[in-house]
Design a protein around this nucleic acid. Structure first.
Lengths: 237, 237
DNA sequence: CGCTTAGTTGAAGCGAATCAAAACTAGTGG
DNA sequence: CCACTAGTTTTGATTCGCTTCAACTAAGCG
């Protein structure tokens, strides 16, 4: 009953919002046995593009980024991972078993790691876990495609507005409600790499939103207030 | 033995390269019962963004595009579907059961349709089918993220080079081998919408590649010869 | 408190978009 | 077979939004 390992998962902050939510209290034991915690400081690398992928993970706290860095230094963030998001590509085709994008901690990060082979056994044993993972992957694909629209066709102003709305939603899911305002998990450089812009352009657009009274901030990260309606207009949602 | 329905799937051009490849000759019967063919002429719409998604499909012949069209007319293609690609998001979360992107036939198109509920039953019955679908979805996600890098950071020249390589691979998979050269399945406007450029810019870049001897074409669509090595250099793969 | 890093702001340059027109293609019917 | 038309592609001239380069300011930290 008071098995320490069982309570390890049971007290987990993302027990029900993550992939693990698909498993019952009994079933979760199977993951519990193979899970191990890992902490990274902001800026540390979890995996490098091209490495062999030998584990999967849940983000339990903090924010991570998936990114591609070209040889000439240009870099593009292709996804942000918030608490309860899953890391890794089980079942991807043979030639895609390598880590497809570098994964780095944006803030201090807490992960719950699963060794590859053992996690795949659990997936095999619980088809409803695999089904849930399929659903999450479908959702991720849609998010990626929506971001393609942003990167391909939106103006700098629209991109920054979209970003603020996107992060607001994500951060409100993660943090306790009620608090008007939220913290940007990343600096101007990362925002720029996520939006396909330069950090100067991002800074200018943020300044502009502040000047027009749509956005109020305290320092570079803390958002005090946003006019969500006007932001939505600008972002073209 | 010579059941006409069975031979319907057995003679299918994409029997083994599509999702159906996960099913044995016995199992395929279950899909056979619910499958129905559908033909579309180039330019016809299969589904509109926001519609209720009540069927899934395999592309059996031709090319389709997934796209988003904004209210002001800007449009972005977020994915191309070639023969043996799967259409639809089974298991996507509740609020994502709507068609996420408009689907249109780029060339004349042949589809193999599966009604939603019945296909989900088959998925439930054959976990290895669901597993295969998961793998394909993981692959699609990676392709989408790679395209995000293109849309966010690549120059017009790099985008066009990447596009030519991408289509070359896809078309060679679909068409009988041996033939040096291939046909572009789409016009300049669609290419531009796929690459986040204008059609004038696409045309200029293609002209440039021809002028530099990297590309030889006959008319606007037929590619006679490409210098794949130099294209790869330009595209930054 | 000085030092380093992150963010802001300004001026100039450039790549792609826009505007405009000509050349080519494909389809139609005389 | 050729003339005619509608649509597509190419090419040119100009404009514009974002990038680049540069200087400055604010914030975080030993």
């Amino acid at each position: 009953m008071d098995d320490p390992k069982l309570s390890f998962c049971q007290t987990c902050a993302i027990r029900h919002s993550s992939l693990c939510g698909a498993l019952s209290s009994d079933e979760i034991h199977n993951l519990n046995k193979i899970a191990q915690r890992k902490s990274l400081r902001a800026g540390q690398t979890y995996a490098l593009e091209g490495d062999t992928a030998n584990s999967f993970a849940n983000v339990t706290d903090g924010v991570a980024k998936l990114m591609h860095v070209a040889s000439d230094g240009r870099s593009q963030i292709v996804g942000l991972l918030f608490p309860s998001d899953f890391i890794g590509q089980p079942r991807a085709s043979e030639n895609r078993q390598k880590v497809p994008h570098t994964i780095e901690a944006v803030t201090d990060l807490e992960l719950c790691l699963f060794p590859r082979a053992q996690f795949e056994d659990v997936l095999e044993a619980f088809p409803h876990l695999e089904r849930t993972l399929l659903g999450r992957t479908m959702d991720e694909l849609q998010i990626a495609r929506e971001w393609m629209v942003l990167l391909g066709r939106k103006t700098a102003e629209e991109r920054v507005a979209s970003f603020l709305l996107h992060v607001k939603t994500k951060m409100e899911n993660a943090v306790c409600k009620g608090t008007e305002g939220f913290e940007l998990p990343m600096g101007r450089v990362d925002i720029a790499d996520y939006l396909g812009l330069t950090y100067e352009t991002v800074s200018r657009q943020i300044s502009r939103l502040k000047r027009e009274g749509i956005l109020e901030m305290e320092g570079g990260k803390k958002v005090i207030r946003v006019d969500e309606a006007r932001l939505r207009e600008i972002a073209q949602f």
